[in-house]
Computed example of a mutant assay.
Amino acid sequence: MLITSLLPLLSRYSLGFDLAAGADSSVTLTIMPRKSEGAKNAPSVVELQAISITATPAEIDAELALGEAGALGQLVIARKALGDQLAEQRQQAEAAKTKAKPAPTAAKASSAPAKPEPAKAAAPEPKPGEPASLW
């Protein structure tokens, strides 16, 4: 059940495992995602956070037997969705970088100092009894 639960993560990462016995007959299972060989993008720090479960061996076995419905299965699904979203955002950012190349004329125009506009003549004073003109 453990490997079946972790298959979605194995498509993106290499996984390391650590199994340690506790003092009160508990066991801590730690799953450590790592960058897989030949991966295009380095995983983010969030994606590489270890998953740790501490319980009795029977409780861990029961949790793993739940598969996708269990806490580990749900965590793996959420991690895979996060990884997919991050990969999609990286692709979109790369596509935006290649599309948004500055035009040479725009660079020249923005680097030249702006010419001050000539001062407009002040509106003539209205004659007594007439409203002021807006034009």
Rank of each mutant, 00 (worst) to 15 (best):
L134H: 03
P43W: 02
I60D: 11
A58L: 10
A58V: 10
I3Y: 07
A81E: 15
A106H: 02
I77S: 15
T105E: 14
A65R: 08
L15A: 12
S26Y: 01
T56E: 05
I31H: 07
E37P: 05
L86T: 14
E130F: 04
A78S: 15
A112S: 14
G67H: 06
A107F: 01
P131G: 05
A95K: 12
G73L: 09
A109H: 04
A107K: 12
Q92M: 11
E125F: 04
E94A: 15
S14I: 00
P8A: 12
A71H: 11
F17N: 06
S36C: 04
E47V: 00
L29I: 07
S26V: 00
E130S: 09
A106R: 08
T105D: 10
I77D: 14
A62F: 04
Y13H: 15
P131D: 06
G67D: 07
P113S: 13
E47Y: 01
E68L: 01
Y13M: 06
P131R: 08
S133W: 01
A100N: 14
L64D: 07
S36T: 14
L7S: 15
Q91G: 05
G22M: 03
T98W: 00
K127E: 11
I3S: 11
T54Q: 13
G67P: 07
A96D: 10
A119W: 01
L29H: 11
A23I: 05
V45F: 01
A132I: 06
P43I: 03
L66R: 14
V27L: 15
I3P: 00
K101P: 01
A93F: 08
A69R: 11
E94L: 13
E68T: 07
Y13L: 01
